[in-house]
Each structure stands twice: as C-alpha cells, then as structure tokens.
Write a protein that binds this DNA or RNA. Structure first.
Lengths: 160, 160
DNA sequence: GTCAACGTTTACGTAAACGTCAACTTGGCC
DNA sequence: GGCCAAGTTGACGTTTACGTAAACGTTGAC
C-alpha cells in the first residue's frame, strides 16, 4: 500500500486526495483556479500525479502554519523555476521565519488578553463570593488548567 | 493637558479621537454602526464623551489582541451590565471564562503551527547548509526583526 | 432503462473590517 | 457671497478561502 503511494506513475482522483488529506473537491479546484495545482486531464476529469500530491501536501502545510494561498503560490512557483531549488529553499526559509515571528507576536497578544481576562474573572469572583456565593460557577477544573499553563510552560501535543 | 483629558466633562470630536488613537473617522462610524460606540450629537455632528473615549480605548485594545468586533461588543456590553445585580456578574464571569478557554485554544493552535514551522525551518537549514551555505539567511537579520519588535512595540497590551 | 454516485463548469453567497467614492450640509473667514 | 475644511449619510468595493446550489455529463449496478 505504501509502496503503491510512492510509485511515481501512480495517479489519484480528486476524491482520493480529498479523503487522504481531509479536504473538499471544492478546495482542490479552488487551488487549481488560483494556480497552485495543475493536474492533468482525462477528458474532463482531473488526474493528479504523484507530484501534484506532493504539492497539495505543501499547500496544506502552508495553510496550517498560516500562510495565505498567494504566499504559498509564490513559494511553489519558485520551486518550479529552479531545478537547483536552493534559491527557493532560502526564500521559503525566510518566509517561514517571518511567519514564526508573527505567530510569536500573536501568542504574546493572546497571553496579554488572557492576563486581563483572568484579572476580570478574579474581580468578579471576589465580588460574587461576597454578595451571592451561591451564584458562583464552579471554577476548580478551570483554575487547574490555568495553573498548569502558567507553571509547566505547557508544551507539545500538536493540535491534531 | 493630561488634566484636561481626564476632566470628565471634556468632549471630543471624531477627528480628535482619530488623531489620538490613529484611527479613521470611517472606523469610528463603523464601530457606532455596530453598536460599539454611541456618541451624543450636536446637530448632526458626533460628540464623544470621556466615557466614549474609554470605550474606544477598550475597542482598540481588543482589536490589537485579535478579538472580532462582535466579541468586543459582547465584552463591552458585559462591562456595562456588571454594575447591576449579582446575576449579571455571574453571566459576565461565565462569558469571560468562555472567552479565556477560546483564547487558550487559539494559543495551542499557534503553538502547533510554530512547532511545524520550526521543523520545516530546521530541515531547510540543514539541506541549505549542505548544498548552498552561502544562501543561508543569517540569523542576524532575523534577530534584528525581533529586537525591533521588542523595542519599538513595547506595547504593554493589557496595561489596565 | 434508470437510478445512484461520482465528476464537471459557472456563478453567486459569506463574513470581517473597513476603504472609497458620491452627494450634501454646515461653519468660519475674508 | 464665495469657498474651503470638516462633518454627515448611504452605498458599493475589497480581500480570503472556500460553501452552496444549479445544471449537466459519465459510468456501473441492478
């Protein structure tokens, strides 16, 4: 089976790739419309080659890390231009690093928002405890999650 | 001047607030359209009170953190309500906690993306080092970007 | 022979957060 | 009385990444 997937002459239907990567036909056609994929045709039907499959993998990876489709297409275009591939790799590396710094900034912003939200929650909890303790929603497990994050620098466990 | 800004009876034109917070009139009217701001009127012209200014600050802070306008409006509505009864406070608290868990999920997604990005970067760096070490982007540029962010944008997002 | 299940194209819908006209009114200044 | 600057209200345009029909063609099963 795996050997089958690797066989270069193997081709794929749109549905096969959709199933494999949990995408929709509409999405693949959209990527084609945007110039990110250019599958062959058998009559009207699209026929995806092994290379197309790799490109789709790259597209989805780019999406997972937050690149726009146009950014992804730029990278893929460079990949096509140079047989060398070194220039494209350098460009990709730069893009990836930029994206990483952007994501780190986003995470800092989120952390700031979480701090403020926790302060607000704490204020409300104190006042509620004074005035109407019976209305206080249970907070035990919630606080545990918070504390785990603050201490352990909660790591790994990729988001599926 | 600062004393002037703090004087509760002080009012502001749309242009003044736009200049102060680097926003556009279109944006403020849009926020009003969405129910986030409700300035008074002097004839046709909008007149922003001290409270409106505070609300605008909260709006922009929420935006910097990546909240949508509708989410911001919910928070503002809750801020307004929570002076009242204990029931309102309990509802606010619940909303805040929901918001916090959503933000934590976002952060996990970002962490996952960062892991994948760093793996991709590492692969590219290794291959590039083998093939064309001269094309390897120096970490210096990257660090400069980081430093620029830390200095220039020392933006205690949630100062409160 | 016909139904279901896939495939195709074309094309409009969506949501967010405004930008960008257009067409007007208002106030101040000279 | 003429004009500019700044305000106002619509209303349509933009971008991203598809979803959602509509209307049609092809193939295999029964």
């Amino acid at each position: 089976m795996l050997a089958d997937l690797r066989r270069p002459e193997r081709t794929f239907t749109i549905r096969q790739l959709c199933n494999e990567f949990k995408a929709t036909p509409r999405a693949l056609r959209f990527y084609e419309d945007k110039g990110l994929l250019t599958p062959a045709r058998e009559g009207l039907n699209r026929v995806y080659s092994h290379k197309d499959r790799v490109r789709l993998q790259l597209i989805l990876r780019g999406k997972r890390v937050g690149l726009s489709l146009s950014e992804i297409r730029e990278l893929l275009d460079l990949y096509d231009e140079n047989d060398d591939g070194a220039a494209q790799m350098a460009r990709s590396l730069k893009k990836f690093r930029e994206r990483a710094t952007a994501l780190e900034q986003q995470r800092e912003d989120i952390d700031g928002a979480l701090i403020e939200l926790r302060e607000a929650c704490a204020r409300l909890e104190r006042r509620l405890a004074e005035i109407r303790p019976d209305l206080l929603p249970r907070a035990a497990d919630y606080d545990q999650v918070l504390r785990a994050r603050l201490d352990g620098h909660g790591d790994a466990a990729m988001g599926k």
